[in-house]
Structure formats: structure tokens, C-alpha cells
């Protein structure tokens, strides 16, 4: 609704990530979302990111939608077969979730249920294609639906990918499968973005870069060591290290990135605060939004 419309108008959009809880206590999440209502255009709700079992994206998306908040629901290939994926998409369509994004999902062995069986019945491209098939009023078996859902479809792209060539080929397949907006993993430097856009430029897509709020030096180090696809520049780490008020510095860094990406002309940002959603207003105001 509002997200698609604003992007179509060329406005800069601000999304916030809302990690669902591991459990049923949702009051905090709802109040944090309500606190930034009006300041963000939509909430991105991850589907069991890092393969850690949590309340589902569909559940939290519906919860936020019931409070009048727009959401981007994630749909993940890892845990559901094509029946379950389509069933959830129909539920989302019927209950007013306008934006859906397909993700492949981190490998099950990275999560907290590493002995589980992965599903991976559909590939990400097949899932994206499937979303569009549902919109034409048919399911993946070709059977007619009683009422077709309408979605703004997106997916992921990684500008920091080690093999950019392969990433761009995958991006083209996702575009061909009908994805229109793309959310990146956290990016910590404009150089990574610039290099990517130089290569990917001209493709008909909305690019939304993720700004991750670093919470500590330890967190930055962890990302450097364990998440190879995300690069945290050493300069940022030492900036936090030297800062008299580290938390404030972290907020400042996030705000600077938001502003820098906006100045670079991307379609929007997704701000990920991983439990520090109460810092969102500070980041936005420091970024001049």
C-alpha cells in the first residue's frame, strides 16, 4: 500500500526490522513499533533469521497489521514446502499484508535446532515466481483460486557478496521471477554500495539498504569473525572503541549511514536494531528524518 506507493513516487522510504520474540510475549514489540509509528513506512518482520526458532513472520505481521501498521512479511524456503508456503501467502493476502519478501533462509545447522530436517522444496526463484502465480488467480498446481491475493513482492540481494557475478545473475533471476524491491544485508560502508550499484545499475528495482545498529565492539568483532558476507570496516570499530559514550556513538554511526545511503539515492533503508528498537527514534532524528 503505502510502501509501494511511496517507492513508485520516488520518495525515500524508511523501514524498521522487528525481530519476533522467541516466545509469546509480544507487548514490548508492539509498543516499540507503535512508538515509531508515522516515522517508518513499514516494518520488516524476519522469518526465523539465522535459523533460530521464533514466533513466525506471518504471526507478527498480522499482529502489527491489526494495529494499523504496514509490514513486510518474510517467506522462507527452508522450513516449508510448497503447500505450506502458498497457504501462508493466502493467509497473508486475506488478512491484509501487502508486502511479502522471499528469502532462502540460513542453513539449519547455523541455528538453534541444528538437528532438524530442512525442507527447501522450492528454490527462492520458484517461490518468487509462485507469489506472482498466486496473484494471477492460480496456485502452483494450476488450480483456480477463489480470490487472488495482491502483493508487492521483494527479495534479498547482497552487494557485499564475494562473487558479485553470481549475485548479479541471481538478482536477474529474481527480477525475472517478479521481485521488485530488494533488501540488502547490513552494509557499513558506502564503497560497498557504490561498487555494487556501478555493476547493477539500470536494473528496474527498488534497492533498500540495511543499516544495522552496532551495539558494542564485541558485536562488531563477532560479525567480522563469523559473518563472512558482511564487512565491518576496522575504522568503525576503533571509532566505537575510542568514543567516550559508546552507545551514543553507535547510534551516531547508524544515523550517518542512513544519511549517506539517502544521499547516494537508494530507494530507502531498513534499520535493524536487534532488540534496541527504542533507539530507533534517536537514529532517525540524528539522520535528519
Amino acid at each position: 500500500m503505502q510502501l509501494e506507493k511511496k517507492l513508485a513516487e520516488g520518495a525515500f522510504v524508511v523501514l524498521a526490522e522487528m525481530e519476533p520474540p522467541k516466545g509469546v510475549e509480544v507487548a514490548g514489540l508492539v509498543s516499540q513499533a507503535m512508538a515509531v509509528r508515522g516515522k517508518v513506512d513499514a516494518f520488516v518482520v524476519p522469518e526465523m533469521s539465522s535459523a533460530v526458532m521464533r514466533l513466525s513472520s506471518l504471526g507478527v505481521s498480522l499482529l502489527l497489521a491489526s494495529r494499523g501498521l504496514e509490514t513486510v512479511m518474510q517467506v522462507c524456503c527452508r522450513d516449508r514446502n510448497r503447500l505450506a508456503l502458498q497457504a501462508d501467502l493466502l493467509a497473508a493476502g486475506a488478512l491484509g499484508i501487502p508486502n511479502v519478501m522471499g528469502v532462502a533462509g540460513d542453513d539449519i545447522t547455523f541455528g538453534d535446532h541444528h538437528t532438524a530436517k530442512a525442507v527447501d522444496d522450492l528454490t527462492l526463484e520458484e517461490l518468487l515466481q509462485g507469489m506472482n502465480t498466486l496473484m494471477t488467480g492460480r496456485d502452483l498446481a494450476g488450480i483456480e483460486l477463489k480470490g487472488a491475493p495482491r502483493f508487492f513482492v521483494g527479495s534479498t540481494v547482497n552487494p557485499g557478496a564475494a562473487h558479485l557475478e553470481a549475485e548479479l545473475a541471481a538478482l536477474d533471476r529474481k527480477l525475472a521471477a517478479g521481485a521488485r524491491f530488494f533488501i540488502t544485508p547490513p552494509i557499513f560502508s558506502v564503497e560497498v554500495l557504490d561498487a555494487f550499484r556501478k555493476r547493477a545499475g539500470g536494473r528496474p528495482m527498488y534497492l533498500l539498504t540495511t543499516v544495522l545498529l552496532l551495539k558494542s565492539v564485541g558485536m562488531a568483532r563477532y560479525i567480522q569473525r563469523h559473518l563472512g558476507q558482511i564487512q565491518v570496516p576496522e575504522a568503525l570499530v576503533s571509532r566505537i572503541q575510542k568514543a567516550p559514550e559508546r552507545v551514543r556513538e553507535c547510534v551516531q554511526i547508524a544515523a550517518e549511514l542512513v544519511k549517506a545511503f539517502k544521499d547516494r539515492g537508494v530507494s530507502g533503508v531498513v534499520i535493524s536494531t536487534l532488540g534496541w528498537e527504542d533507539r530507533l527514534p534517536a537514529i532517525l532524528s540524528a539522520a535528519g528524518i
Binding site: T109, T115, A116, K117
Partner: peptide, 12 residues
Amino acid sequence: TPKDWTTSRDGG
């Protein structure tokens, strides 16, 4: 108990 599938295809 639920089986450990890491020794099957699910562990790569």
C-alpha cells in the same frame, strides 16, 4: 525422540 538429521542430507 525427534531424529538428528545432521547425519542425513541435512548436514550438507
